[in-house]
Design a protein around this nucleic acid. Structure first.
Length: 616
DNA sequence: GTAGGGTTAG
């Protein structure tokens, strides 16, 4: 046997060999055979494998590599340990590198089923179908067959890597005795690529075949229902969960709470939450996130309940809480949460910093947003996009454009969303040419195909600049039928530029859309006609709205004054200090008139009830 | 001394 095996790793030049390794090497050299002694209770191979594992556990990867390199001989277990440890730390290419050395090594150690399942995991992690297929070939070459672990890992690799599901299905079919892992791996393969229905069909098949079923399969199936808003399916699975007596499993119950939240059934979500014997942080985070979208005040209540029960919040919790605060636009609340984040030392979390940046912008404090942005030690595409949205929503189009150019210079590749952010910022600041240049650059320089939403941005840009003809022609020439966002942008522009003729031109097409959205458009048209002074058409539209029962929910605004939130709708007649609000409004209108501005009736008709019109 | 599938945000 050779005394020194080939070295694999390069460690830094001035790296000091740790004392433990020196001692170990000394022992190996003095007992270079498989001896048992008071100093070597186990064989050197077992000892070194254990040592390597503990180095990895402590994050001392250099030491683990150094020790591996110094080993005079290596067996399949220590090779596999290296591969597994790298793969479980998401260092997939290093895992595959070790495997490559293993099969080319002079000592000819044959990989076993343990090795192959870790190697396949690394291929999956790299999303490399070609590597996976090559490993599949090697599996054949080494004649390894009949291990369910390997078959499931192979199935997982084909089901997870980009490509078709055909290979995964064929592996699945060939597994003689499938276990719960085989089934759930196939289901996850479908759901991860957005084909929830196929995943649910496999789950159904699993139940029909009376296959081994466990908690994992249930939570995956519930999540599939949640993703596509299939509450009926989710309820059926809930019944099956009860039938199988799995109500005490926290992950399964968490997925049910999430499913009900996503299906807007907050009552059922609460019932599940209350029925749970044990709740973990995910349970609380899920319920808070559920309320964040529909009732941000209640989301904050759940958060304080969670804190009062002594549950320690994490980054997920804070991100959701910040979103709730943003929805309420309560600056003081946002600052309190920011304080809590700093106290817990979580301010370096990127997603959290991005959420804080957006929160300050929504609360009207762009300068704070910029401070968060500048203080970030690392920024991702979301950070840049959020800062551009912050600038854009406050009318700082030039600043957003400058930021976009800085982002490109810093080497970040843009996506569709960041283009929409910068185009929208240009649109709100009246920077028509700049906005058009960005739209052109999106597909000319970055080959991003604009979707409906991106076209909506462009139409908004043209519309706000008063180029209604061009906007209309663009709608006609788009590669898809215009949706609500496109018509919304166009009609908003018709209204702003008091162009009832253009609005009439498209009314037939727009009102032919889905009946449940027509109400919104009726209101828009009525406002456009009102803005144009066509009160007859306005009255007709309002009548039509009432007859169809369509009613757009009134937009609610609120303002925070001395730690107190005042909420109101347009034309509000009730609430505290309403009279003084109207008095101030009178003064402002008079100031505007004195400055030579005519009162724009169009901006006062939005969402207003009949009585309020008298006011203008 | 070596291997597998699940739940929360952006």
């Amino acid at each position: 046997m050779r005394m020194s095996a080939r070295k694999l790793f390069s460690v830094p030049q001035h790296y000091q060999i740790p004392q433990t390794i020196r001692k170990y090497l000394h022992m190996i050299q003095s007992h270079n055979t498989h001896l048992s002694s008071p100093f070597l209770p186990k064989s050197p191979l077992v000892l070194s494998t254990n040592l390597i594992k503990s180095y990895f556990k402590n994050g001392q990867i250099f030491d683990a590599c150094l020790l591996f390199d110094e080993m005079p001989s290596r067996d399949v277990v220590v090779w596999t340990t290296m591969i597994t440890e790298f793969a479980s730390r998401n260092l997939y290419s290093r895992a595959l590198g070790v495997f490559r050395h293993m099969i080319n090594d002079d000592q000819c150690v044959k990989p076993n089923e343990f090795t192959f399942s870790s190697v396949l995991k690394a291929c999956k992690g790299m999303d490399s179908l070609s590597c996976g297929a090559m490993v599949h070939g090697l599996l054949m070459k080494y004649g390894i067959r009949g291990s369910l672990y390997v078959e499931n890992a192979l199935l997982d690799m084909y089901a997870s890597c980009s490509g078709s599901m055909e290979d995964a299905c064929s592996i699945f079919k060939d597994i003689c005795v499938k276990n719960a892992v085989s089934w759930t791996t196939l289901i996850t393969g479908y759901t991860h690529r957005g084909d929830e229905l196929s995943g649910l069909l496999v789950f159904k098949q699993m139940l029909l075949e009376d296959a081994e079923i466990n908690t994992f399969s249930f939570s995956i199936a519930v999540r599939a229902c949640a993703s596509i808003g299939l509450s009926a399916g989710g309820k059926q699975i809930h019944a099956a969960v009860i039938k199988h007596g799995l109500e005490c499993n926290t992950p399964v119950m968490n997925s049910l709470v999430d499913m009900y939240c996503r299906c807007d059934s907050l009552i059922e979500a609460n019932q599940c939450f209350d029925a749970m014997e044990e709740r973990d942080l995910i349970t609380w985070n899920t319920l808070i996130a559920g309320y964040e979208k529909c009732d941000p005040n209640e989301a904050l209540n759940v958060y304080s309940r969670m804190e009062s029960e002594g549950v320690i919040p994490n980054c997920f919790t804070f991100t959701t809480v910040i979103a709730a605060v943003s929805n309420l636009a309560v600056l003081s609340g946002g600052e309190q949460v920011h304080g809590g984040i700093i106290r817990r030392g979580l301010q370096r979390n990127l997603a959290l910093a991005n959420a804080l940046l957006s929160m300050y912008a929504k609360c009207g404090e762009v300068a704070y947003s910029l401070k968060v942005f500048n203080d970030m030690t690392s920024k991702d595409l979301v950070s840049w996009t959020s800062m551009m949205i912050a600038y854009g929503s406050h009318g700082y189009g030039e600043a957003a454009a400058l930021l976009f150019d800085q982002m490109i210079s810093s080497g970040i590749w843009p996506d569709r969303v960041v283009f929409m952010a910068v185009i929208s910022a240009c649109s709100h600041a009246g920077l028509l040419d700049k906005g058009l240049r960005y739209f052109k650059s999106m597909f000319d320089d970055y080959h991003i195909i604009p979707d409906q939403e991106a076209y909506g941005c462009l139409i908004d840009l043209l519309g706000r600049a008063g180029r209604l003809e061009e906007a209309y022609q663009l709608i006609q020439s788009m590669p898809f039928l215009p949706d609500e966002s496109v018509w919304g942008a166009f009609l908003g522009a018709c209204k702003a530029h008091k162009n009832a003729d253009m609005a009439k031109l498209v009314s037939r097409e727009v009102l032919g859309l889905r009946p449940n959205t027509a109400g919104t458009y009726h209101l828009m048209f009525s406002n456009i006609y009102a803005a144009d002074g066509e009160w007859g058409e306005y009255a007709k539209m309002r009548k039509l709205m009432k007859s169809t029962g369509n009613r757009k929910e009134a937009g609610r605004s609120w303002v925070e004054v001395r730690n107190q939130i005042h909420s109101f709708v347009a034309g509000d007649k009730v609430g505290s200090h309403v009279e003084s609000v109207y008095d101030v409004l009178e003064v402002l209108i008079q100031h505007a008139k004195d400055a030579g501005h005519a009162l724009d009736i169009g901006c006062l008709t939005d969402d207003m009830e009949e009585g309020t019109r008298n006011y203008s």
